[in-house]
Design a binder for these strands. Structure first.
Length: 788
DNA sequence: CTCGGCAGAATTTTT
DNA sequence: TTCTGCCGAG
């Protein structure tokens, strides 16, 4: 249980192990000159850096130098020798943030900092703690970390094993439930009765229990466990808890507004003793509630830690007054917030936010591309421009346009490298070689490339493995010596097992990148891709090469695998001058000179679905998302909305987003000339816009939607280009109806046009979770069902 | 076992 | 519209 017994213990950590008293500056003379790293901080930033004892909440608005404060604070603790690097716990959400922090601390105090092994993401640190005490959680310290894909497949198996119709009760739904429980820090036994009811006639909790049992038997943990298990260990073992509490003299948490309940509990446990905890966040940038983040955590920090010092960073160093004014005006419409007012010293207002209406997404893309090219011609780098969309399907139009015009661009976020199928397959091979008992990995590649091993064989393999209590790979070797299966499959299995044995042997001597290459060749995986005539096969091969290349940087195969399971991204070169395209979520923490915000339409942004599911809280989160988008910009913001958009192949007309109306008119400029009514006011300007087609087929003209657009246009004309409100936000809210109360309650029988009869399981706003007799459980809007 | 055709679903996704 | 996942035919 001690670090020394654990093969995964960091040798550096051992050096710090006796936890020596910090060699304090021994009442030495106060430093004559103040350290260089404090220079240039404003009063609040300085206070946030220097207030080391006791709980501190730093409310850091967008662009107020948050990262600088965080890193300087850490540097300060180290430089004044208040604690050893290994006595500081610093948590972030992303690997990127952790990396950046490490680099910047190094830069501040000179050279790289060794021994900051407790600086990392919640998950990386959780994994570290769990590895040290794995046996207390029923695991071995070399447990594998499952990602979402593995997790889903495992849940599917659990559902199948329980003989539940996976059609009616999709694994995805259970996965969401389990994740939700884990986010809230709930082990199976803690799941409240009401929640347990919500899957397959009350089997949810039991399935969760079985899933956990399966994880243990596979010696695996999912992401949620990396937090949940350490919490259980700390709660159940007082000495261990004390060890950590004693160790962590200072704690620092970034993006506190994004913490979920489990992370909150974890932090509370660890901060128990000295309460030198400093959390940094911005409630106005909380955009992950849908993933379990609790804004409440930051809102109640002062209550949780009595005597906490609250420091507000409100001086913004990023954006123009016009942008700040617009963003502040918008976010002021939210009620649940601690309240901050960003200000800047800049005396030039800067360009107003430019708003334009367009006919459809195609025109929107044309305009944005034209504007970007225009700016580029004037000497602005593409890399300093970003297009931030609400949903990734919006990206397509832009990409097509950029490709057509030859504008270099990059998509940030997108499907990540390690999530690509070919990479995951290659990783699965490596996992089996590294650990022959990794059944999930084995299963993934057992018939990839196709070896003629179908369901029947796999089933027999499973049965045998279970009966003999063996991992699948070992079971394969054994099964191939019996006559339980067809001779052909027997041969295939035995040669597969032999091949893996050979690879495992080779792994002992061969450098792991070479090993990987051999595996990919000998398994037939590369050949499979070479034979694949689909257009992206070449790219896949390229990705595999990239994977092999990236392995060089790691000492061992095991180290590489651990890295990949926690860090799902590959460093990408940001040096080229490319236009950035990403979702608003992916943009958090970034900044650009010019920001394009397309698609500001009711229903898309704010998203109808979020509003349906979460009511006003959802709307406020959408508004925070808009705030995040605006505050990414240093100099220029272009907002646009389209009157028509194709949603799932259907043309739909939309109104401008209510957020547009919420922007203070003084900071906004409607682009009349090339805008909404100027461009196609008459409607028949040209056929290029797709205008004729769209309406010929869908009859948009006569639809209520079209009439609303007409009305909105009339309103715009009347108000003139310099007046922001295009539609009255309040009126719109009334028109939409406040999605709070539903006339249905759990237990009522209902009828749905498409799904038939069912029983309401849960009510959230005007959204119902209904267990349909025929169609299984679905989320539906209450407007689509009738009382039965 | 594999391939092709068809229904059904379609946000955001730090790890 | 476009993708995925499932079922039935070969």
């Amino acid at each position: 249980m001690t670090a020394h017994a654990n093969p995964y213990a960091d040798p550096l950590e051992a050096a710090f192990e006796p936890s020596p008293e910090p060699s304090a500056p021994a009442a030495g003379p106060a430093p004559v000159a103040e350290p260089a790293y404090l220079r240039g901080l404003n009063a609040e930033q300085r206070e946030a850096v220097l207030t080391l004892e006791g709980p501190v909440l730093v409310l850091a608005g967008a662009g107020t130098g948050k990262t600088r404060v965080l890193t300087t604070r850490l540097a300060h603790i180290l430089a004044t020798r208040r604690a050893w690097p290994s006595q500081i716990l610093a948590v972030t959400f992303t690997n990127k943030a952790a990396r950046e922090m490490k680099e910047r601390i190094g830069a501040l105090i000179g050279g790289t900092v060794e021994g900051m092994q407790w600086l990392g993401t919640f998950h990386a640190i959780g994994a570290r703690i769990l590895r040290r005490h794995a046996e207390l959680a029923g695991l071995k310290s070399n447990f594998t970390i499952l990602d979402q894909d593995d997790q889903l497949r495992l849940i599917k198996q659990v559902i199948e094993a329980a003989n539940i119709d996976e059609k009616r009760w999709p694994a995805r739904t259970l996965e969401i439930l389990i994740d939700g429980w884990k986010n809230r820090g709930l082990a199976p036994a803690d799941v409240p009765e009401a929640d347990a009811q919500s899957f397959a006639f009350g089997k949810g909790r039991e399935l969760y229990r079985q899933y956990q049992a399966r994880l243990k038997s596979l010696n695996a943990a999912d992401f949620g466990d990396l937090l949940l298990e350490p919490i259980a260990i700390l709660k159940g073992n007082h000495e261990i808890l004390e060890e950590y509490q004693h160790r962590f003299r200072y704690m620092l948490v970034d993006e506190y507004q994004d913490t979920n309940v489990a992370q909150y509990l974890w932090l509370r446990l660890l901060s128990g003793a000295n309460k030198n905890i400093c959390v940094v966040g911005d409630d106005d940038q909380s955009i992950y509630a849908w993933r379990g983040a609790e804004v409440e955590n930051i809102l109640r920090f002062e209550r949780d830690y009595p005597g906490a010092k609250v420091i507000r960073l409100e001086r913004n160093y990023r954006s123009t007054p016009a942008i700040l004014g617009a963003a502040s005006g918008l976010i002021a419409a939210n009620r649940a917030r601690l309240g901050k007012t960003l200000w800047t010293e800049s005396d030039k207002d800067g360009d107003k936010i430019r708003i334009s209406g367009v006919w459809d997404a195609e025109e929107e893309a044309r305009n944005v591309a034209a504007e970007a090219e225009n700016l580029h011609r004037q000497g602005h780098a593409y890399a300093e421009m970003a297009i931030l969309v609400r949903a990734s399907f919006q990206m397509r139009e832009f990409e097509e346009r950029f490709v057509a015009l030859g504008i270099p661009y990059r998509v940030i976020g997108g499907p990540r490298f390690y999530e690509r199928a070919e990479i995951r397959d290659a990783m699965a091979y490596l996992r089996v070689v590294a650990q022959g008992d990794d059944d999930l990995a084995f299963e993934r590649i057992v018939n990839k490339p196709k070896r003629g091993l179908g369901d029947a064989t796999i089933q027999a393999l499973h049965n045998h493995a279970r009966a003999a209590n063996l991992p699948l790979l070992a079971a394969a070797a054994e099964l191939s010596t019996t006559d339980e299966i067809a001779p052909k499959a027997r041969n295939t299995l035995s040669s597969l097992a032999a091949t893996f044995a050979r690879w495992t042997q080779a792994a002992a001597t061969l450098p792991h990148p070479d090993l990987a290459e051999i595996i990919l060749d000998e398994s037939g995986y590369t050949d499979m891709l070479k034979a694949d005539k689909s257009p992206d096969a070449a790219g896949r091969l390229e990705n595999l090469k990239e994977l092999v290349r990236s392995m060089d940087a790691f000492e061992s195969l095991a180290a590489f695998l651990e890295h990949v399971s926690l860090v799902m991204e590959l460093e990408n070169n940001t040096s080229e001058d490319r236009l950035n395209l990403m979702t608003l979520h992916a943009a958090k923490g970034l900044e650009f000179e010019t920001v394009f915000l397309p698609g500001w339409e009711e229903g898309l942004f704010p998203s109808q679905r979020t509003m349906d599911e979460k009511g006003n809280a959802g709307l406020e989160e959408e508004r925070r998302l808009a705030y995040v988008g605006l505050t990414r910009a240093k100099k220029r913001v272009f907002i646009s909305f389209a009157a028509n958009r194709r949603v799932h192949g259907q043309w739909q007309s939309a109104l401008p987003s209510r957020f547009i109306a919420e922007l203070p008119g003084t900071h906004v400029e409607n682009m009349a000339s090339e805008g909404f009514y100027g461009n196609y006011g008459g409607g028949f300007r040209d056929n290029q816009t797709g205008f004729g087609e769209a309406n010929a087929t869908s009859g948009t003209y006569d639809s209520p939607g079209w009439r609303r657009v007409e009305a909105a246009r009339a309103g715009m004309r009347a108000q003139g280009p310099n007046h922001a409100p295009i539609i009255d936000a309040k009126a719109k809210v009334v028109a939409t109806g406040d999605p709070s109360a539903s006339k249905y309650e759990a237990g009522s029988r209902v009828f749905h046009q498409k799904f038939g009869y069912g029983r309401v399981v849960a009510v959230e706003g005007n959204k119902l979770l209904v267990d349909f007799d025929k169609a299984g459980s679905k989320r539906v809007m209450d407007g689509f069902v009738q009382k039965a």
